[in-house]
Every structure is written in C-alpha cells, then in structure tokens.
Design a protein around this nucleic acid. Structure first.
Lengths: 258, 258
DNA sequence: GCTTCGGGAG
DNA sequence: CTCCCGAAGC
C-alpha cells in the first residue's frame, strides 16, 4: 500500500501534472495540500477518470487539503485539527483500517510574527486532536509540516539557524507528536543528511539542491511494523515535463507491506 | 502574395497559437495588433524559427503593433500616424514595393467619452499621415480599425445604433480614408451582410455569431488591380485547438496576384 | 471573458 | 519564482 503526500501549490494550476503523476504512480492514497481552491472549484472529473475518490476541505485562495484514494474512505473528518479553525489545513479519513490525515501546517512567516504564534498554537491543537486516539491506532499523519526535524533536514544550517521552519519552538512542537507515539517514517530507512522535499522557487534552489525536508509521514506503532520504504520523487520537482511549472514540493510516498 | 492582419490580444498569451497559425498559413506578411508588450518582451525566437522577420512598435501592458514578414522590409516607420503619440498604435514598412501599415486604432470606450475624442483625433492624424503619400503608391493600411463601415458589418444594428464602433462620426473618419483614395478590400469580393472579424468574449458571442467587422484592409488603386480575395479565418477565432483561449479577433488575409 | 497589473503570500 | 486576488481596460 502506497500513501503519497504532495503540496501541489494550487491544484488548478497543476491539474495536468498531478493527474499525469497519479496515473503513472498509482498510489492507493494521495494526500494533497495547498489546493488554493474551494470544493466548487476542485477538478474532480480528472481524478474520477483515473478511478480516484476525492474528499476535500477547501478554502478560497489559500490553504485547502484533500485526500484522493482508490478505495472509498470508511469515514471522513474535515477541519482537522479543530473545526472552528478559519483556515482549511487538515482532513482525515479512515481507509482500510488506517486513519490517514492530510495536513498543511502553518508556515509562520518569520519567528515572532503573529503567524508564528498561530503556527505554534496550531500544533498544540494538532497534539490535542492526536491525543483523542490511542497510539495503537494505525495512523499516518502526513503533509507539509513546515518544520524540519533537525539540521540534517536543512541544506544550510548556519543560514537557517533559528529561522522559520527551523526554530527550536517549532521543532519542539513537531517532536511532541513523536513523543506521543508517532515515528518519522523516513528515518526508519535513511539517517543521512541532505534529504529534502521542498526547494524554494527563488534563487534556483532546485538546481543547487538548496532544500529542506518539511514534508513528513508520521506513523503510529502498528504501521512502523509494516513500513518498507519512503520515496521522494525529486524528478517531479525538478522536471521540465508537462509545460514546466512544477510545485515547489516533491511528492513523498510511504510504502507499507500488505 | 498574402497579407494578414490579426489583433492577437497579447502575443505572450497567444504565442503558440500565433506561431502554429503562421506555420500553417505562411502569409508573406503578418500585421499584429494588441501585443500588450514591449520590444524586450516580444517572443522573437519563435518567429525567427519560422523564417519571419519582425519589426515592432511596443508598449508596456497596452496596445503595441508589429509586422512579421518572410522578406526583410526595405524601410521601417514606427510610431504611425505621428511620433509623439504616447500610445503605440501604428507601424509601417515597405516590402516588395508595397507600403504596409499595421494599425491598432483606438477603441474609444463609449460615444462622448474622452477616449472617444482621442479616437476621432487619432483618425484625423492618420488621414494627415496618409496624405503625405500619393494615392498611386501601392499601399495596404490594415489592422483593427475599431469601426464598422455600415450596418452590414453589425450583427444587431438596432442595439449598436450610434454606439461605439458604429457611430456616425467614427464612420465619417473611416470614410475619409476611402475618399482619399483607399478601397475596403473585402467589399471588392462580397457585398453581403453578416461578415465579421471580431466577436465579444462575453455572452458566447462566437457561438451565436454576434460579431462586428472592424478589421479591414484598406488598399490603394494599384493594389485594387491585384487583389483576388479577402479571407477571414473564423475557425481560428472559434477554435478549441491549442489549449483553447483564442483571441477575440479572427485573422483576416488579403490575397494579391503576383 | 480574457488580458494586463500590482500587492500579498510563500 | 509562482500562486492568488481585485481592478481596469476592451
């Protein structure tokens, strides 16, 4: 079973690329972030034609998340981690006995900015939501966390030191999810530095591999047993295919046994 | 010899369509209007690859005209009809003994609007410019005139009566060019009503053929002798090809003998 | 409708 | 760099 996360930076601007990728890679579940559209604007038809169901928690212009899947979800919870959030940043489903969440965590703009305070508070809310489950629940919380775990995830740790996406309070929030009982799936397979999932559009980031690892699969114990790989499709980020214009994030795929 | 006029409504937004059309139809001269770009922004490379020279009188965001030709022009006069005009609406060349002008005449917005006064004054300037030549000069003044000659050029003459593009003062200015010695080339071949070159994007204008004839070839006596056809490529305006998004104007081609 | 722009966001 | 938007222009 394959579960992919992909911040597509506008599904309408990227529809063809996403559908081509989906057609070629056929993950069982595709978690999308930064749709930048409402449910009315979402291009369901293309996904339908490829046999994918889509549930979406949309928003005009900003944010917006969705989960596309070959099987119908058994349940859907939009507005994760809390329903009163006026930003659409999370949606969760149950599929084949696994709880899957697609998360677009706040960016925070810069350390100390009001958006940074919202980011930290948002992660506290995410922790609260997570705590409503048992750590024995098969779970995949995946998406764009907008936080690096440590300096191995950062191409230039000196430049990024205590900057947004890398500050200690942010990393504490991310590690609180680990402490609860989740595992950073990629690190089960590769402990090396220099593995990235996002590269800034500016400054030719992708050509010089100036990236960060901020898209993660956090998985609970029962899935740690089943995890066999995490794959980052850097070619899709780099790619000149399909009229150029890739997203600034690569698709990242968790492969589970069975 | 074929001389085409085409208001492309942004050459950057329409580059592929224009080049595909050019490659298929191979006119000797292509007069373009509403480039909406400066010379720096103009996509010369694609024209070059098809063997076309391009001279341009550009402007940021608005207006902008060009002439693409298989043969090099023997002379170029940008800023027609007068050099101090702060809007880039005309360029003229001499090619194979014929003076060719590509004109994007002012729209005028609505009768009585300041832009309407500018439109009338602009046509007076055009008449002055024209008067610097002999009517025996082989000339093609072509482009988007933003004026209909008479009600045969109007899909709904009642609705358009004395409206912008159809008002008596505008038609007088257009006829002043005829009185000087030019001929409306299309009417040499077809006197019927309902021949249009422009259809509003709104209200499904093209589907109901709710159009106007505002793109003209005005030709001098020596070319009246040589004219054999005027062809309007309505399919290109209608077309769903090349990722949709046609211009609101069709290409119009004058065919000359020799 | 469709294009341009500049401003805000990332 | 790339996206969104709301004006303005046609």
């Amino acid at each position: 079973m394959k579960i992919t996360t992909w911040n597509v930076n506008s599904i309408r601007a990227r529809e063809d690329r996403v559908l081509n990728w989906l057609d070629q890679h056929q993950p069982d579940v595709l978690c999308l972030q930064e749709l930048k559209c409402t449910e009315e604007q979402f291009p369901f038809d293309g996904f339908d034609a490829l046999g994918y169901q889509v549930v979406i928690h949309g928003q005009k212009s900003y944010n917006g998340v969705a989960i596309a899947s070959l099987d119908y979800p058994d349940s859907v919870e939009a507005a994760v981690p809390w329903p009163e959030d006026d930003q659409s940043r999370g949606i969760a489903v149950e599929i084949n006995g696994i709880r899957v969440a697609s998360l677009y965590c706040p960016n925070g703009r810069s350390v100390g900015h009001p958006a940074y305070e919202y980011k930290l508070a948002w992660f506290d809310r995410l922790h609260d939501w997570l705590s409503s489950f048992s750590p024995q629940t098969p779970m995949v919380l995946t998406g764009d966390y907008n936080i690096t775990f440590d300096d191995r995830d950062v191409n230039d740790p000196v430049a990024w030191r205590e900057q947004i996406l890398c500050s200690t309070p942010e990393r504490q929030r991310l590690n609180a999810l680990i402490d609860w009982g989740l595992t950073d799936a990629l690190r089960l397979f590769d402990e090396s530095a220099g593995i990235y999932t996002w590269w800034d559009y500016r400054a030719g980031g992708i050509l010089q591999n100036k990236g960060l690892r901020i898209d993660h699969h956090l998985i609970s114990g029962p899935l740690v047993e089943r995890a066999v790989a995490v794959e980052i499709d850097v070619d899709e980020r780099r790619s000149e295919r399909d009229g150029d214009k890739p997203s600034d994030h690569a698709p990242v795929t968790l492969v589970l046994e069975d």
